[in-house]
Design a protein around this nucleic acid. Structure first.
Lengths: 234, 234
DNA sequence: GTCTATAATATGATAGAC
DNA sequence: GTCTATCATATTATAGAC
């Protein structure tokens, strides 16, 4: 796993060979993960076969097993390769806003943007990130996926948003905030996985191809939902 | 398929037998559909096997095929048994509001309730309806399900809401309305399929066991999102 | 490391007895 | 109508050659 600590100029010809082979191996592994990500994004976990994956990655079936173990392990590897990255982006945006507000409450719009922008941005990515985020959200709703439980543990980064929302909206209690956070995430997930349906329902009236417009629209909508005063008072 | 038009008292003993057998057959078919609904609600389409279904319905594998045909046909039958019912409920609530408002615009809260109440109500149903709505939403997001395309055609009942929203909120243009309808449906779907996650994230702080509270909260939140003024103007 | 070949098992669908 | 038995096929996983 670890690169040997010997300086390159002290390597023998055999050692050089070994390093080159390791690099080639890593490339193959990533190619398998890429192919898996692509397939899992467009089909449910159970309906993708290892043979399909092997074919898409241009390797033999055994190579998949060699690098990534069982099918369940493969799925976890696909997930783990990028999962934390998204949450890190969210929290990074939140921290940046925290710093620039110099000790006073973060404006609601900035909190919403930190929560929503990374997911939307990834979903508009034409490359692997766009595929990944679809795969990720689909797995969350697929109870037959081995990741299902994993998601339920991954809630800490969301909880980081709560104290900031409380401070910015002191008239809301914590339950209010959690409920609206939930509805906001619903809008986000539906937007990421099913923007085509909006196209369909609206007969192409909505411009779903602009990332900036999509972000501004969902941020505006979510902000308004949060501003709706405490629950009992209406 | 059709019940014979002969009056019961003119039936021979053989005909009575035939009718009884038909009824028993229908019961078996419904039992298979119930079992399928239950399994598809908790696992993805591809990961449920016909053998599991047969076992759950206490029939042989061949009986499933006899009554429902192929696996794809079975899924469609499970779907069709209840699919239109939900949309009918929505449109019925909308029509009722239309009548009671006597020619003037329907209050926004009533429109939201017509859109959201049936789905939430079904999801709180302890029986088969609660299972069905989970199955339905999951299939919508599962591109390997044979129903995937079907959903994209099923948009007319949603479009019925648009003119009413336009009339109630004349400051919004049609694109605004479609976008917010989209976000509202996202919140709804996420609430139906993943209310447990809210429990988890909020550490049990939110009372997710009350249907009335859930409805009022999502209606309040969606109403506020629709009231957020036209998109360009903020 | 990567392949081909194969083992062990599971699946959807159907034939045929009752 | 419903069952058991079976077909043809597909699957995951692994053994063994190179």
């Amino acid at each position: 796993m670890q690169e040997p600590l010997i300086a390159p100029d002290h390597r023998t010809a055999d050692e050089d060979d070994s390093v080159r082979r390791q690099e080639r191996s890593e490339v193959t592994k990533q190619r398998i993960l890429d192919a898996s990500e692509r397939l899992f994004a467009s089909k449910s976990f159970a309906s993708v076969s290892l043979r399909e994956i092997a074919k898409a990655a241009s390797v033999g079936v055994a190579t998949v097993n060699y690098h990534l173990g069982s099918k369940d392990d493969l799925l976890k590897a696909v997930f783990l390769r990028r999962a934390t990255e998204l949450n890190r982006e969210r929290v990074a945006l939140l921290s940046k806003s925290e710093q620039s507000s110099n000790g006073s409450a973060i404006p609601l719009r900035q909190i919403m943007r930190a929560l929503l922008l990374p997911g939307i941005r990834w979903s508009f990515d034409q490359g692997q990130r766009g595929l990944f985020i679809q795969f990720m959200i689909r797995c969350q709703l697929d109870p037959s996926s081995p990741l299902y439980e994993l998601f339920y543990r991954d809630v800490r980064h969301l909880q980081r948003f709560v104290p900031h929302l409380k401070r910015t909206l002191p008239e809301l209690d914590e339950a209010d905030i959690h409920w609206r956070l939930h509805f906001t995430l619903g809008a986000l997930h539906y937007t990421i996985t099913d923007l085509n349906r909006l196209d369909q329902v609206s007969n192409g009236l909505c411009n779903t191809s602009s990332m900036d417009e999509t972000v501004e629209r969902i941020v505006t909508s979510s902000e308004a939902a949060f501003r709706a005063g405490p629950f009992g008072a209406c």
